[in-house]
Each structure stands twice: as C-alpha cells, then as structure tokens.
Design a protein around this nucleic acid. Structure first.
Length: 583
RNA sequence: GCACCCGUAGCUCAGUGGAUAGAGCAGUGGAUUUCUAAUCCUCUGGUCGCAGGUUCGAUCCCUGCCGGGUGCGCCA
C-alpha cells in the first residue's frame, strides 16, 4: 500500500532530519483529495508547525529534503500553506499493477494480527417472512464478514435466528385454534403469519387471550411435548424457505444457532449472576443494576430524570420466570467466547437497539468477558411517510418480493438486447444483476443514515448502481474474448493518455480502501470506490482503444484491463455481488 | 424529561479538521461505420438547519437553539 509505505518514509525522514516527533504521533499520509497537486498528500508540516512553533512551509521543505522516496515518486512538492504532495512514478505504478495482476489477493496485504471474529447478522424470525427490514443486517453483515476474511481474519458467521421468542406463545395458541391445514400445505409461512396476526389482534381486544398465550409460552419453555412438536414444525417449515432465499442471494452461514440453542443455559446463567451479585431481585424480576463503576452519563444502567439519576435496569428474568432477549444474548456471548475463542463479536443490528447492547456488553464485562463486542448499528428503512416500516402489526414489503421484482426488471433489460444468449443464460444474468442491484443499493449507503425505501432506487439499472459496475467488468471480459493470440501481461507501463494514469492510480487504491472499510465497518466506502473505479474505466475505455493499439501501448492497456477486471470481480465479491461475463 | 442518530443541490444520498463541498436521478446540449450505448462528454443547479465557540484553517470538533427520527423494568 502506497499510503503505508509513504507514512514509513515520512517517519524515517523525521529521524534523518533530527526532528523529534511528539509522543504517539504518526505523520498522516492520505490519498490526495485534490489531484491537481499529486496522488498522495500529507498535512504533517501544518499540524507540527503549530506545536514546534515553526513556519509550516519551511518545515515541509526540511522534511522534503530528508525524504527518500526516489523509488516511488517522480515528484514531491510543497504547496499551499504547507502540504507535502507526492506524485507516483510510472515504475512504482507498474510494479503495483503487476502485483494486482499476479497476486491472489489482488495486491491487498493481510492484517498485521489475525483475529477470531464472530459476525452475528441477518437473524430473521421463525414463522415470519423476511422483509425489507432484514436487508440492512443481512447485506452489511455478509459483506463485512467477507472483507474480514479476505484480509486474513478468521471469521465465523452465525445466524442468530429468532426461534424462541414470546411470539411462540401466540403462534402455538393460534396453531391449536386457528390453523388451516390446507393453507399450511400451500404456503406455510403465509399461514403462520395469518395465524399470528389473528391471535395478536385478539390479545389486544381481550386480556384473557394474552394470558393463554403466555401460558403456552411457559409450557413450551418447560418442555411440554405437544408445544415442542408444534414449535419444531414451525422452525422446519420456516428454515426451508429461508434457505431458498439465502441461496438466491449467495449468502452462507457457518452456523444457525438460534435463540433456542441457548435455552438450557439461561437458568444457570441467571443463578450464576445472582450468586456473583451482578444481578438482584427487584419487583419480582431478576435485574442488573448499575455497579457505579463509570460516570453516570456513561452508565447504561442509569437514566436522568429531573436532576436525579434513576435506575434503568436490564431485566434478565421476568417475574413469571420467563427469560428475555438480554438473557439469551448473555448466554450467546458465553458460548462464542468459550467454544469459538472469539476475540471480537460483531453485532450487525439496528440502531434502535443501542441501549440494549450497551447493557448486555456491560453485564458481560462484569462477568469477566474480555472479548471485544461491537454493535455495528444501522439506521432504519423508512416508509414513504418518513416513519419506520412497521414490523409487528403493520404491513411492510417482503424481501423476496423485492428480489423477484429486481430480477424480473433485469431480465427485461437483457431481453431488450440481441446477443444470441439462451434463456438459461439470460436467467442467470438476470439473477446476478437483479440481486446485485438490490445489494448495491443498500451497501452504497452509509449504514448509519435512515433511508426511505424506494422501489426505483432499489431496482434502478442506470447510474450509480450494480449494473453500472457489472457493465465495466463485462467490457473488460469482452476485450479478452476478442483478443487473438496469446499475450503475456508484463505489467510494464507505457503511458500515452491521461486516462491510463488515472486508471492505474485508482487501481492502486483498492488495497487502502479495503482496509479502511473495517476501521468503521462501513462497506459503502468500498462501494463508492468501486463506482469510481468503474467510472474511471468507462472513461478510459472511451478514450483508449485497446485491441487496435500496438506494441507497448497495447500491452499497457491490456494490463490495465486485466487489473480492472480482477479488482472489480474481487471488490464486488467482497460486497457479496457476483459477476457475469456478458450482459 | 433524559439519551442516541439525523438535517448537505429540485429529489435521493456521498463526503472530509485542509486547498475550488461531490455523485446519481431529474433538466440541457452533444458523441456510435470503432473492443457491449446497462456507456461517454457538456452545461444548469449550494448561506453544508440556525447562532456562538475552539483552530493557522470548521460543512466536519464543542455549546446552545430549531426541525425530524428512535430508545428509555418485565416484547425481540
């Protein structure tokens, strides 16, 4: 990575010039924001000029004089208030390009320390279809897991299926009283949803029904054979459909350890927490209160009311003996730490659950867990009214519905072109483009912002979309299909057009970008990069004929095409988006 | 009431303690006998919610306010 190497050289220059760096200070080199001056830049002289009370420009000149970068840069300049600007040499770019073409990892170096990382994402509920609300967790989690794995971490993906919630009280009651066997055979999930909704409405009208449901839930949790049988059937029927959806989306999990998996661990866990004094009984429930170890404003177990800090406990056992979400999460942490030796656990779960995770993480730490637990939060998908899509009672758009519509639209676009492709080929192309479009629409967005669900945006095939990136890839492949005779790509560069250099620089930045994604767990950085790369390639493609060029120029352009092809395929793969040779 | 997130072009959204704040869509005018036009190139479009503060430099950090969203003991 040029950025890392230049940072090292900068640091060396400080020693060579006998300049002391402040404690813990690393001179920052970044990809140039303004490419008029160079490819990489550093503002170190301006930052340190203040502290060392010297003129930033003079300091920059001093650093420049001590800098040894002849092997990398054709030019280093001091501009503006004191920026150091680096312009890479053709030979350095050629070396990098050669690496991209030959290296399995497309020139992306591995992390310094490989961690065991558990990624918890998607987590659909049993007896409910996946809806658009699952898009964010599923795609962001899948992409982050792929990226972490790619740069050398050991990753375990776990789908923490909601197979043991309170909803089963209602579903079992409904199964016993409302179930239509015919409908169940036709469309199991649809029928389970109908049953659930009917009962849910009934509980709101009549408290007695709610009590019955709670009773069914307790029986299930105590191992009642009949209820257990119903529950198992619900799980089986739902997983069947889920796996079909994940298959279409090319998403795989190492484990499907749902909430029920931890059932037996819950009672001992609560007893243990009571014994250790972490939990106490309050108003009949078992709860975790603040231990006063942190400042009140940082304490997830306290909330300010008027001028006093009031307890905001985390409940781990209800007064009726039932367990909760937090209890399961704590048991899950135990398992992941003990069985999988997790160094890190990533929770790709919506932002509204922030408080929940702060409490759970704090409680786990009090139990002696030292694993790093990170809540990778994301904003809500909003309805056209700007309010959250309702998941419990209100209607929402089904995930499958969105995917199918996207594939259909991609198929129409494919049909409109005459390329002599078979129906089967067109079907596969439509699947790749359709699912890619939906994934890209999600992943190109900053995960923290709420966004309005829009069919047009989700399904668009023009502009900043997956098809745009795939088209760039297809153009690279097309060139190699038409290439006659064997060519050995040396990676040497003979640059004759500005578009070639721009593309070479952009390709070199893939390594930095891929690593940056995991700093803040933001896949949209990679999506944005790939869009820029595709854009740069499309411009290059229009400006620089490849097959009609000759000699060293042709070799250069073929190398650029091959490198672009590899970076696009790899990069899209890291977003969970497949590629196609034609479209 | 308290906490967290958000407020950037007509619309949907990127972005960063730095140099002239970007893209897509929409609008505009062009490009194809040439490697896939699901493409490229033009132009139009901004008091980065408001007011202070820190800084050599703030759309970004801090404080207050306005507006929107979410969460705050027995749902998950």
């Amino acid at each position: 990575m040029f950025r890392a190497v230049l940072t090292d050289r900068l640091q060396a220059a400080f020693s060579a010039a006998d300049l002391a760096l402040p404690e813990g200070f690393t001179p920052a080199v970044v990809i140039a924001s303004d490419t008029r001056f160079g490819d990489y830049q550093s503002n170190v002289a301006m930052v340190l000029g203040k502290q060392l009370k010297t003129n930033p420009r003079a300091l920059a000149e001093q650093i420049k004089a001590a800098l040894q970068v002849e092997d990398l840069c054709e030019k280093v300049t001091v501009d503006g208030p004191g920026f150091l600007n680096f312009t890479l040499s053709e030979s350095a770019l050629a070396t990098k390009l050669g690496g991209i073409i030959r290296d399995d990892k497309v020139g992306v170096p591995p992390v310094a320390k490989a961690n065991q990382i558990v990624v918890d994402f998607s987590a659909p509920n049993i007896a409910k279809p996946m809806h658009v609300g699952h898009i964010r967790s599923t795609f962001i989690g899948d992409s982050l897991a792929r990226i972490a794995r790619f740069i050398g971490h050991q990753v375990i993906t776990d789908n923490h299926v909601g197979d043991w919630g309170t909803q089963f009280g209602m579903i079992i009651h409904g199964w016993k009283t409302q179930l239509d066997q015919e409908s169940l055979k036709k469309d199991a999930i649809h029928e389970l949803v109908r049953v659930y909704k009917t009962v849910n409405a009934a509980t709101k009208a009549d408290e007695a029904v709610l009590e019955v449901c709670k009773g069914e839930l307790v029986k299930l949790q105590q191992g009642d054979a009949e209820n257990l049988g119903i529950w198992k059937e619900c799980v089986r029927l739902t997983l069947e459909q889920l796996e079909k959806v994940y298959g279409t989306l090319d998403i795989k999990f190492d484990h499907y350890l749902g909430e029920s998996f931890y059932n037996d661990a819950l009672a001992p866990l609560v007893e243990d927490m009571l014994a250790q004094g972490i939990a106490t009984i309050s108003e009949g429930a078992t709860v975790v209160f603040s231990d006063g170890s942190v400042k009140p404003e940082d304490d997830p177990f306290l909330i300010k009311e008027k001028d006093d800090w009031k307890a905001a406990p985390c409940i781990i056992r209800k007064s009726d003996g039932g367990f909760l979400y937090a209890t399961t999460d704590l048991a899950t942490i135990d398992y992941r730490v003990k069985e999988w030796q997790a160094d890190e656990i990533w929770y790709v779960v919506g932002a509204p659950q922030q408080l929940h995770f702060r409490q759970v993480f704090a409680a786990a730490k009090r139990r002696g867990v030292s694993t790093s637990m990170i809540h990778i939060a994301f904003g809500s998908i909003l309805g056209p009214d700007g309010k959250m899509f309702k998941t419990r009672s209100g209607e929402t758009v089904g995930l499958l519905e969105v995917i199918e519509e996207a594939i259909e639209r991609a198929r129409e676009a494919a049909d409109a072109k005459e390329q002599g492709l078979s129906d089967a080929e067109k079907d596969e192309i439509a699947r790749v483009i359709g699912t890619g479009a939906v994934k890209y629409a999600e992943l190109s967005q900053n995960r923290l912002t709420d966004y309005k669900f829009s069919w047009d945006k989700m399904l668009s095939l023009q502009g900043n979309t997956a098809p745009y990136l795939l088209n760039a890839y297809v153009r690279t492949r097309s060139i190699f299909r038409k290439l006659e005779g064997a060519v050995t790509l040396t990676g040497e560069l003979t640059l004759t057009d500005p578009a070639e250099r721009l593309l070479a620089i952009k390709l070199a930045q893939f390594a930095e970008t891929t690593h940056d994604v995991l700093l803040d767990h933001k896949p949209n950085l990679l999506a944005n990069y790939l869009f820029e790369l595709a854009n740069t390639y499309h411009s290059f493609y229009e400006a620089c004929p490849v097959l009609k060029s000759e000699g060293a120029v042709r070799n250069t352009r073929l190398s650029l095409c091959e490198a672009t092809s590899r970076v696009l395929k790899t990069g899209l793969g890291l977003l969970g988006i497949e590629t196609t040779e034609r479209m």
